[in-house]
């Protein structure tokens, strides 16, 4: 069901934070409908990579194209690209002063210029999809971490993006809440959404990924199908990493 051609094209991207090189010549192609799971030790550049694709982080070399548009730091290209991508953060980043419903409606009303009634309909439909329709009138801090993260996913979906990026979406959650978030993400994957997920949840990766990427020291060390990746990783660093997180 994937449409032909790349929807994200990362070409030789390098990013520096002062002296520190966070990304080294990263090249990555993601096709529409593809689900990419990125893993690697902390500080390996996985978050930086998706934050670069999202325009939250500057990169100094290379280029990134999203759905045919080149990512640049000017307002015009940001306005073209931003609505195509949704992003879910490790810390949820819900707006604490707004109710769940208002969190969801803000984007559609303010940046998509939807009528309030239509935006409310849309918000309710996505709340049903993440299975918390009954929490619409509550404030974020009244919800559990898992519920908050599902609200954050619904908030992104309300912008009806073509691509969803997840930056360690379950790392800030208590263990018993991880699955409710992963279930929602699995459903989203089954619906055909293009996704790049930074996570250490390897069970989830096996279920939904059609490409696995292992990063270390700012480089993509290995990229393979999940079957190859888990059964016969090529590089020693990747083997070592998988050993550590799979058999602890």
């Amino acid at each position: 069901m994937a449409a032909p051609g790349p929807i994200i094209q990362v070409d030789g991207v390098s990013a520096y934070f002062g002296e520190f090189q966070a990304l080294r010549q990263v090249t990555l192609t993601v096709n529409a409908g593809q689900r990419v799971v990125v893993c690697g030790p902390s500080g390996s550049g996985k978050s930086t990579l998706i934050r670069c694709i999202y325009g939250l982080e500057l990169f100094q070399e290379g280029s990134i194209h999203v759905d045919g548009d080149q990512l640049a730091r000017d307002r015009k290209s940001m306005r073209a690209i931003r609505p195509k991508i949704g992003m879910v953060f490790q810390q949820f980043n819900l707006f604490p002063h707004l109710t769940v419903l208002e969190n969801l409606m803000l984007g559609p009303v303010r940046s998509r210029r939807m009528a309030r009634d239509a935006a409310r309909e849309l918000a309710h439909s996505y709340l049903r999809r993440v299975r918390i329709p009954e929490q619409a009138e509550k404030y974020p801090r009244q919800l559990s971490g898992g519920q908050q993260q599902r609200v954050a996913i619904a908030r992104s979906l309300c912008m009806e993006p073509k691509i969803m990026l997840f930056d360690e979406p379950t790392s800030a959650l208590d263990p018993e809440m991880i699955n409710e978030v992963l279930d929602v993400m699995t459903e989203l994957a089954e619906s055909g959404m293009t996704m790049i997920v930074v996570t250490h949840e390897m069970g989830f990766a096996r279920r939904v990924a059609d490409m696995m990427i292992f990063m270390d020291h700012g480089e993509i060390v290995e990229s393979a199908s999940p079957e190859r990746f888990f059964s016969a990783p090529e590089s020693a660093r990747c083997q070592d990493f998988l050993q550590k997180i799979l058999h602890h």
């Binding site: 939250l56 931003r82 949704g86 803000l106 984007g107 303010r110 940046s111 954050a152 309300c158 912008m159």
Partner: peptide, 10 residues
């Protein structure tokens, strides 16, 4: 909060 606002294109 800025990143979240950015993520819904405000």
């Amino acid at each position: 909060q800025y990143e979240a606002a950015h993520s819904i294109s405000l």
